[in-house]
Design a protein around this nucleic acid. Sequence first.
RNA 1: GGAGUGAUAGCUCAAUGGUAGAGCAGCUGCCUUUUAAGCAGUUGGUUCCGGGUUCGAGUCCCGGUCACUUCACCA
Length: 501
Amino acid sequence: MDNVHFDDVNELIKRRIEEYNLLKENGVNPFEYSFNVSGYSTDIISNYDENVEQNVSVAGRIIAIRRMGKASFTHIVDVKGKIQIYLKADELGSQYDNFKLFDIGDLIGIEGKVFRTKTGEISVHAYKVVLLTKSLRPVPTPKEIIDESGNKVVFDQFTDKELRYRQRYLDLILNREVKDVFVLRSKIISAMRKYLDDAGVLEVETPVLQPIYGGASARPFVTHHNALDIPLYLRIADELYLKRLIVGGFDAVYEISKDFRNEGMDRTHNPEFTMLEVYVAYKDYEWMMDFVENMIKHVCLTVFEKTVFEIEGHSVDFGQKWQKVSMVDSLKEKTGLDLLTVSDEELLKTAIKYGVDISQAKSRGKLIDELFGIVIQPLLFQPCFVVDYPVETSPLAKKHRSKTGIVERFEGFVIGREICNAFSELNDPIDQRERFESQLKDKEKGDEEAQVLDEDFLRALEYGMPPTAGLGIGIDRLIMLLTNQNSIRDVILFPTMKPVK
RNA sequence: GGAGUGAUAGCUCAAUGGUAGAGCAGCUGCCUUUUAAGCAGUUGGUUCCGGGUUCGAGUCCCGGUCACUUCACCA
């Protein structure tokens, strides 16, 4: 005991260490090396056949114990779910005595036969029970019942959000639905990869540490490389590197990776987040619209086997053709303002009228973005593509082939939330240089998120980039939508937290 | 960054400015098909941290920490 170090020893931990010592005295290894498992809890239950004797071996963590003297019931959870175990003293002998020293939280292995109890629960009648890992910390003990209407009711649920995020392992042990969300997250990303791979798009990896950050409007994290003695930035987007690869002759590439933006945190923002970017040569944004639409539909069908989702009270159908909404036309319709011809003064006046905070909007492009966000965005429930963005808001997008002052860009929206951003990529290096220079002017005006000029990227464009369609999808937000989660922290396993103390 | 709300036993929560409590978990008994098992008994507290007011502070005041909600910014 004296050589045991816990930062917060209490009676419960002391008792568990005592049990750990007693078990060792009984010749039990409290930290076993392996255990052969024949199947998982929920599979055992669904494969039960009362006419066939089935012997199984399962392993899992004890979440409940009901001791009745010379017999006991315990529930264990494994990766798929939970199952009840029945143990009898006269059948287990010394193993039963050891079981008396087991606690909620311990990991155990069981061999036994499947049966149905008097009260109807399919369980495992153990003829062997071994301790696999002794849990030295008390695990919280929520309890649940199924009420008359068949709904699950949980008592003393582990709900403290701070503890759940900081100690996600406990959250995963105790809240089944949390694990389900992350399994879905994995499946969604797999389905996207499969779709992209099957479409002949090559998965690549580009630098996270960049001497010049670019590809998005955001403030970066800065770090320092000791040997080179230079600052390096954690990437805010993959865009400029992926386009260099298109210049290099790959004609379709994608990357799924973490981006980092040094900005505020809230329900929809984590400092590091997962982004998918796709670039396909010889295609334009019209082609990309069909591509996104089909990819999302494919994900819905393979992971959820449906295209209609109930999201915040709205029935959203990812199976229908996505409607196109023109930013310029819709704003003209609602506000009477023609973005293409309006003067700066007139734009400012209208922005104020609709409640745009002009102290934050440093540029014309930002004002237009804000105005759209307030006036039109909340109206877009069904999946749709917003098109016809003014050139000011999109420094990396190609000018529209027929409409002046407009770029070939679209953003996908679902129930008023943006889920993707794409353009016909700007590949004219002279135009690109002018756009960067215009961004520099915004930066001088105080726009900290304005993009910086990347000379090597311009040089790459000068060698010639084929016409290219590009796409970005914020994966975390897409997963929030599809799994009906209200906070980005509920789709990120270990969200960024401020350290305690 | 602003505003609001909150932090009490391992977990979930109570407590007019007046002895910090309950349920679960734990511990001691009894109990060989229970299931929020049951019955009897019992342990457990830096009330987030630091000041202040008061005869007396979990409670009121000030400062701080962390979280959540919301606004701003952004994806």
